[in-house]
């Protein structure tokens, strides 16, 4: 287990990557910028666990908050609406 690269309040961008196999980063949020809301903890990598490997070292998992109006150009609702998504550190870059 290492230190978390990002802290609450940091602006981050989700990698817009194509992946083959199991992963937990929904497609709709890839490429979007958001703000780290909290560090959820450190967890084994699900992309490895899915294939019965240990998934170590553990990765930092973040809850990242995104503005709905930026995620969905046609979003129907006021500016303050948000969506929180849990994202593993290796899916995030500094925004």
């Amino acid at each position: 287990m290492s230190q978390a690269r990002f802290q609450p309040g940091d602006r981050v961008k989700v990698r817009n990557a194509e992946v083959v196999g199991h992963m937990r980063t929904p497609r709709y949020i890839r490429g979007h910028e958001g703000e780290v809301e909290r560090i959820c903890g450190f967890f084994a990598n699900p992309e490895e666990l899915a294939y019965n490997r240990h998934g170590l070292p553990k990765r930092a998992l973040y809850r990242v908050r995104f503005d709905q109006k930026k995620v969905w150009p046609d979003y129907q609702g006021p500016a303050g609406d948000t969506v929180d998504v849990e994202i593993y550190e290796h899916w995030l870059d500094k925004a």
Partner: peptide, 11 residues
């Protein structure tokens, strides 16, 4: 079975 194996096989 792990949760992520369950998910992977469903996917």
């Amino acid at each position: 079975i792990r949760t992520d194996e369950l998910r992977k096989n469903i996917e």
